[in-house]
Amino acid sequence: MNGNNAQPLVTCRDVVKTYGSGNAAVQALRGVNLDVYPGEITMLVGPSGCGKTTLISIVAGILRPTSGGVQALGTELARMSSWRRTAFRRTNVGFVFQQFNLLPALTAAENAAVPLVIQGYSKRAALRQANELLTKMGMADRGDNLPGQLSGGQQQRVAIARALVHHPKLLVCDEPTSALDNRTGHTILELLREIAIEGDRAVMVVTHDPRIFEFADTLARMDDGHIESTERVRERALTA
């Protein structure tokens, strides 16, 4: 339970994920338990191959766990069909990727509008909402630029706008600062913090970057498919 006594948005219980079968089977997650709260940033940290990416993939509804339960927004993801998980992601999850994964042929505004287009919005309506969001994020004059014409920080802002444009309750960020310099990385994390608090969203961040640990509300340290420790960083900082 967090400091505000809020209910977790995502609950993972004894989550196991095994890739392959027989002798070639690799256990990526070995019984993970985790609660992710709205209005907070939950960071998953740990060495490469420890299962961070597998865990956020499961929480985001991309992968199905081999066993265990994953409740997100009151829905049991583990038992959902692939088609329903796709629909779940379309409505409830926003993604921020390490390499931004913006479509190079689309302008910043068009990129930000993609989730709405996927939901069936018309191009005009989607672009209007995307431009409004970019304006809020200080990117009003960059809406017509192609990703190649933007700096790394600006591209990541567009990626965040894309992740937020359809008002998801869960934001999943994979190494959002690894392609950015320190200052820009901090700016991006401050933005994510605002997003988490203002929208009462749960933000999950996978990172290797210790310089941004300070932005976490909860720091979950992973190793070898387990969560070794869960630390309430924000409460500790506030108490200190």
Binding site: A60, I62, W83, T86, A87, F88, R89, R90, T91, V93, F95, F97, Q99, N101, L103, V114, P115, I118, Q119, R162
Partner: peptide, 16 residues
């Protein structure tokens, strides 16, 4: 392919 993967992750179905 990564862009298609991203679209899939964002909820675009195979049919789309």
């Amino acid at each position: 392919i990564k862009q298609y993967g991203a679209l899939k992750a964002m909820g675009a179905g195979n049919w789309s």
